[in-house]
Design a protein around this nucleic acid. Structure first.
Lengths: 178, 178
DNA sequence: TGTACATCAGTGAACGCGCGTTCACTGATGTAC
DNA sequence: TGTACATCAGTGAACGCGCGTTCACTGATGTAC
């Protein structure tokens, strides 16, 4: 049952949308062909009409997720500088919203274990993200350091969130106020 | 072929040693029963004489790894304060030495996806680690924030290390100097 | 505009592989006498 | 101290399951006339 070209493009979008969500929720190795296709309303066999492999899907999903994040970052930073972004990034809402939140904080420690194309996509995406996160007239090193704090704090807070809510909150607040 | 009680204890140590290494190299989901047992010089069947499940092994391995890290942290901090620790933590040697380096930077983003016992072990271990990393007379929030920076920087630097050496070095340096 | 036909997007069964776990077995250990 | 025997740590085959990938098939699409 062939579908129209428009519908095919739409299906590809749907696959990527699900993949981006799973990427954040379960990491790169948690993006499964069957689950992604089911989430997009299809069966697994059709997957290879859109991507050559699970690995390629992951690389594209990571690239898109980081681009989206960089785009959002640039917007918020141009409005309220790094302070404005910090407030949102370290908010409890972001702490809980893994599936739509920062793709870096959701995947970073798993990247070194991924195949080269995925690592390359992440490296390029992270660079673009960080470049987008240096406000006009801000010292570059200061801004980079700041992003390390933000991402580090969110990662650690999430890691302990459901067993040590106190520590999670303390970490977010400590970086917020520093 | 039964072995002596002493040898059995020794075997358990060997299993845990390999598990701790694999935990850092491949993350919690990369700690495989067969590989751990092979690394310890045994076959997989004997595993369940030492642990009830792969999950239990992971929880114990994480606890031990974080304890070791906290112990080391306390020592370095009591000698040279957070500055002394920072220098070592952000060194290129540590960047490359994943298998014996900081277990937090090696696993943190995968923790929220692990079963509850593993998450609990990590939460407890991270708290103890951080408490050990607050030098006498230092502001608690400042120290916590500093650890977020360090861990964040190392995680990001490792994620891009082999595709963007420049950025990796820049991140380590930025946090070093801030 | 209508018709015949080639194309091809998606289906679902099948395959191979890795992995956690189980279990009957082996033979060294260590205890009871 | 020596011997017989119960215990039990480790072995390796086997099982079930999930997952990535392949492939013959289906039937709607869209093109050629």
């Amino acid at each position: 049952m062939k579908v129209s070209a428009a519908k095919k493009a739409q299906n590809r979008e749907a696959i990527l949308r699900v993949a981006e969500r799973l990427l954040r929720e379960k990491g790169p190795s948690g993006v499964g062909v069957a689950e992604v296709m089911a989430g997009a309303g299809m069966t697994h066999g059709g997957f290879y009409g859109h991507f050559t492999s699970r690995e390629e899907l992951n690389a594209v999903a990571i690239t898109q997720a980081l681009q989206r994040a960089a785009c959002y970052l640039a917007k918020v930073v141009s409005d309220g500088g790094l302070e404005g972004f910090t407030r949102q990034y370290l908010d409890k809402v972001h702490l809980k919203d893994v599936s739509r939140g920062c793709p870096i904080a959701a995947t970073a420690t798993e990247i070194p274990r991924q195949p080269a194309p995925i690592r390359a996509a992440f490296a390029k995406g992270l660079r673009d993200y960080l470049e987008a996160g240096i406000p006009e007239g801000t010292d570059r090193a200061d801004a980079l350091s700041r992003h390390c704090s933000l991402i580090g704090a969110l990662i650690l807070a999430r890691a302990v969130a459901d067993h040590d809510r106190t520590l999670a909150g303390e970490l977010l607040l400590a970086v917020q106020g520093s």
